[in-house]
């Protein structure tokens, strides 16, 4: 699992690659939080290269989303692979987290 970040337009884009499971979900969350804590703007979590997520990873994303909501930062996820999009829908995350089909779409939505 790798976490990288870049700034595009008004948003901080955090990309996760590989697998987020019960063995590394905490590490994932800490890695994302250390990047977004240096910032106070909008955050987009790009999952294009995320191949697997379990409830442990969903829990991390929920905690990240709650933290951002508390500091009034916009948060969205983008580019979910099919199986991961299905998991998001099953647990109702599509109702509490904004999902965009591409990074470009997420960036322009944040800008408006």
């Amino acid at each position: 699992m790798d976490v990288t970040s870049q700034r595009t337009g008004g948003a901080l884009i955090v990309s996760v690659e590989g697998r987020v499971d019960g063995a590394n979900a905490r590490k994932f969350q800490k890695a994302v939080e250390s990047v977004i804590d240096d910032d106070d703007g909008a955050v987009i979590l790009d999952m294009e290269n995320l191949s697997y997520i379990s409830s442990a990873g969903l829990r991390s994303i929920l905690l990240i989303a709650k933290g951002l909501q508390k500091r009034n930062s916009q948060f969205a996820v983008c580019s979910l692979q099919d199986a991961i999009g299905e998991v998001f829908r099953i647990v109702g995350f599509d109702k509490i987290v904004t999902i965009h089909s591409s990074q470009g779409e997420a960036v322009s939505a944040m800008g408006s």
Binding site: S54, S55, R59, K66, V91, I96
Partner: peptide, 15 residues
């Protein structure tokens, strides 16, 4: 439940 009221566990078995 809305985001702020969502408990952080209980999703695994449901999935």
């Amino acid at each position: 439940l809305p985001l702020e009221q969502r408990p952080i566990g209980g999703l695994g078995l449901y999935l």
